[in-house]
Design a protein around this nucleic acid. Structure first.
Lengths: 127, 127
DNA sequence: ATCGTTCTTGATAACGAAACTCATTACGGT
DNA sequence: ACCGTAATGAGTTTCGTTATCAAGAACGAT
């Protein structure tokens, strides 16, 4: 059975108010800074659960997992600023079908894919 | 100045004879199994260098870096078997231009991207 | 070939992210 | 309110990777 605890809700909220992707440890620090007595392991567990349930996106960068709140249960990709972490959700229907067909061409089944675009956002480009 | 040592060459060769992506530690074990007295730190450094120079691709999976030899200095992507690690290099001109245009549409400059397709290869699909 | 400089190596320590442990807490159905 | 059980969290452990630094090796000059 899945239970609703204030800790999970705190993680959900903290994630929702964060700009761009954040690490589990950063989110943990942010929560502790607000006075929350939440534990680090709980933040890891909550983020992992949210990612599995589709309420958060995760990506691996430099050996750590980063998370970001997203529209639940929709498949999409991200355009991420290398400098400030600004993230834009993008749709990529063309890429979806391309990935599926490439996999099929080589006899691969159960295809999934990782597609992320990095760059410098308009603001950081000016800086 | 960059120097040529037998250790770097050993890593290059070991990477070249490996199928699919391998971890630094796996490559280190393979080298030690052949009797080479190479050090772990050296394998990490050599792989990192090869990746920077474009002689190897790297990707992050489950918190560890995996490497694979590839045609030098060409940009391409991979179709990777989740089960056995078999890797196929794929070209994706359509994706290249798509990534560039999406970035431009949102005011992003200096775009780069991560595109990898995972699945089960024909052999593993039968299993 | 020898020297001297400077880069590379490698055993080990240090580091950080994440998983695990398990006694305690507290959610939710009754 | 009670109880079974999932969730919590402080501490510990694991694991991949990087830093340290003395000893060794490669390259250019002689």
């Amino acid at each position: 059975m899945k239970r609703n605890t204030w800790q999970r809700e705190a993680v959900r909220q903290a994630l929702g108010t964060s700009e761009g992707f954040v690490s589990a440890q950063a989110l943990y620090s942010a929560l502790r800074d607000t006075g929350s007595p939440i534990g680090l392991a709980t933040v890891y567990r909550a983020l992992s659960d949210l990612a599995v349930e589709g309420e958060a996106d995760s990506l691996q960068q430099e050996g750590e997992s980063l998370y970001r709140a997203c529209t639940p249960h929709t498949h999409h990709h991200h355009l991420i600023c290398r400098n400030c972490g600004l993230t834009v959700e993008i749709e990529a229907d063309a890429v979806e079908s391309w990935a599926a067909s490439v996999a099929a061409q080589h006899g691969f089944t159960q295809p999934s894919h990782v597609v992320d675009v990095f760059g410098l956002c308009a603001a950081c480009s000016r800086g």
